[in-house]
């Protein structure tokens, strides 16, 4: 497997009124070419921030404090996206690394037609020669994201489309330049289950057709199980466990991963009582010392309160950051 994105020791801080929020504190992981990599965690765990930091889409008061994002280009060069001049980064962002955000309504400009918005990305990155070609390509793209009657829909304004249709247009926009990496940040959270299934299927088939790499950001364990190859579980700005989807679901190691899986009802199994994780997510201005999960952990030991656990491999490709698996 060839790596395509290597995130190393990423730190992102937000300088808010209440103090410095250490949203991301030393996140490292590698995404391999052609896989679907899922970053899961609850609200505020930093999964979204991580995905945006990859192409420096962090807005004030946030700042990338430390770390590197190595991107392997098609011709085999390695470039650090965090050190790239803005102009060069812009040529990569949207073209080679494209995003799909959660809220399709916010992602589309209500003043322009859907065709215009799909064509715009291509015109900006000069993948088409003229606007006219762009619109023609847009029709093809809308057809490829399974929008019925694309000749008519290119002329439709966002308010004339349903939520699912809008998300298809957004996906179309992201795919218009045939990106190598598609970062989908909660792409189906705003949608209904039946539509969600359609969109997930669409992303999968497009990924296969374009041979793209997908990085999926979600809080929904069901969606992860459905389409991910490898999974990283985040908690309070850190990755606590990484593994392939079977390792994570069948053999979870970190107490947080275990808790998370038990807190989600599986409708196929008769559950007498859901197990809940006591307490709440810590505030990241003054995160707990040591392991950030220790105040909520049922297996907490003395060492957890003082020292941060390192990432250790428990089986091939399956890493966990927990003192339970580390010999001191």
């Amino acid at each position: 497997m060839k790596p395509i994105l290597e995130i190393k020791d990423l730190h992102v801080h937000f300088y808010t009124y209440a103090g410095v929020v250490k949203a991301i504190a030393g996140v490292s992981f590698t995404v391999y070419e052609g896989e679907t990599f899922a970053l899961v965690g609850e609200t505020g765990c930093g999964k979204s921030v991580t995905s945006r930091a990859i192409t420096r889409l962090i807005e004030s008061p946030g700042r990338i404090v430390k770390g590197s994002v190595i991107y392997h280009t098609k011709d085999g060069r390695k470039i650090d996206l965090l050190k790239l001049p803005e102009a060069e980064l812009r040529a990569i962002r949207g073209k080679e690394i494209a995003y799909i955000f959660q809220d399709p309504t916010a992602a589309l400009d209500p003043l322009y037609t859907s065709g215009y918005q799909v064509a715009e990305a291509m015109v900006v990155h000069r993948t088409v020669r003229s606007w006219k070609d762009g619109i023609k390509r847009a029709i093809e793209i809308l057809r490829s994201v399974l929008i019925p009657d694309p000749e008519k829909r290119v002329k439709a304004y966002p308010h004339e489309l349903s939520g699912g249709m809008k998300q298809r247009v957004v996906i179309g926009t992201s795919l218009s330049n045939r990106p190598r990496v598609l970062i989908a940040d909660e792409p189906t959270t705003a949608l209904d289950v039946t539509i969600q299934a359609q969109i997930l299927k669409l992303i999968e088939s497009l990924k296969r057709r374009h041979n793209a790499t997908v990085m999926l950001i979600t809080h929904n364990m069901g969606v992860v199980a459905e389409i991910a190859d490898r999974v990283a579980v985040m908690y309070a700005g850190k990755i606590v466990e990484i593994g392939n989807v079977f390792q994570i679901f069948k053999n979870p190691q970190h107490p947080y991963t275990k808790g998370l899986l038990k807190a989600v009802p599986n409708p196929l199994i008769k559950v007498e009582k859901l197990e809940s994780i006591p307490g709440t997510v810590p505030n990241l201005i003054n995160p707990p010392p040591g392991c950030r999960f220790h105040p909520r952990c049922p297996f907490v030991m003395d060492v957890c309160r003082v020292e941060e656990p390192p990432m250790v491999e428990v089986e091939p490709g399956h890493q966990v950051a927990c003192w339970l698996y580390t010999k001191r």
Binding site: H13, Y15, T16, Y17, G19, P61, V65
Partner: peptide, 14 residues
């Protein structure tokens, strides 16, 4: 207000 309050924060060691 948050942004005003932010300005008045001590730039604490990060």
């Amino acid at each position: 207000r948050r942004s005003i309050e932010f300005k008045l924060k001590k730039r604490r060691r990060e």
